[in-house]
């Protein structure tokens, strides 16, 4: 299932300056797209517009050539799973398992209740990412890393073809960052999903992404494969930082690192 954005432009009503202008990209199954850019560049806006949570001012999103606008909320819910930032823990919080079961909503009728089938699906999904010990914990009592796992499980249980994650590894400790990155890589390589993620970590993007969108402070974008886009020059321009990209060799693995040297005056 191909996710494609054609000539996407977004501006807030009453505002002349667009937040996003002439966005064009496409992601195939088995590919991971990472979106990088400084704070306020429009990364979250891009996620929301490409998934239909916010309407493009002009241009559109296509899934396998079908305009997102022509799909029902239920169809979209079955195709695209959206994982918000984990910091928004709501009041009246559910247990982990009840939260994951919500992911089946797009597959159930309006007044249907989840039954044993849905419940064991939620269980298996939690177990498959090694988070089944969180099933009975109220989401309000969870740490950021634990809640992130619940949110990812909730997205997976919907059996989506496209998964969109807003800063999935931000705010997690070192261990959990790697766990999330490995999990995303697994979903792309083994389950053949389309995965799109926002990130603040260039090294993470180089490590697991296939394609990159860079957005700079004045909302200009650059789209392309990792090797082309993630250069010291491009990243330096985007973040106004002098930096070096290098590989660390560990056995037969090469792990990319990005090290900031100093800030450039803006």
């Amino acid at each position: 299932m191909t996710l494609q954005v054609k000539d996407g432009t977004f501006r807030y009503p009453l505002s002349r300056e667009p937040i996003l202008e002439d966005i064009n990209f496409h992601v195939e199954p088995g590919e991971l797209l990472a979106i990088l850019g400084p704070n306020g560049a429009g990364k979250t806006t891009l996620m929301r517009t490409m998934t239909g949570l916010q309407q493009w001012s002009s241009g559109h999103t296509e899934i396998d050539g079908v305009n997102l606008k022509d799909m029902s909320p239920r169809e979209i819910g079955r195709t695209i799973a959206y994982v918000p930032q984990a910091r928004s823990v709501v009041s009246l919080s559910l247990s982990g398992l009840d939260m994951v079961t919500i992911g089946r909503a797009a597959h159930l009728g309006m007044i249907a209740q989840p039954g044993p089938a849905e419940e064991s699906m939620a269980w298996e999904t939690l177990a498959s990412i090694g988070a089944d010990h969180l099933a009975d914990m109220p989401c309000g009592n969870m740490s950021g890393g634990q809640f992130q796992m619940i949110l990812i499980a909730r997205a997976l249980v919907a059996e989506p073809r496209i998964m969109v994650l807003d800063e999935p590894e931000t705010g997690l400790d070192f261990h959990n960052q790697m766990v999330v990155l490995n999990l995303l890589q697994h979903l792309v390589r083994e389950k053949n999903l389309v995965v799109v993620m926002n990130t603040h970590y260039p090294a993470h993007a180089i490590r697991i992404a296939d394609k990159i969108i860079l957005i700079d402070r004045v909302h200009r974008t650059r789209f392309g494969p990792v090797d082309e886009v993630m250069t010291e020059e491009n990243l330096g321009d985007i973040f106004d930082v002098d930096l070096r990209i290098s590989d660390i060799e560990h056995g037969d693995r090469r792990v990319p690192t990005v090290t900031a040297i100093d800030v450039r005056p803006r």
Partner: peptide, 15 residues
Amino acid sequence: MRPKSLIPMPTYAET
């Protein structure tokens, strides 16, 4: 493209 090794199924193991 950089070689991408097959990653074993990750386990979330905070607790």
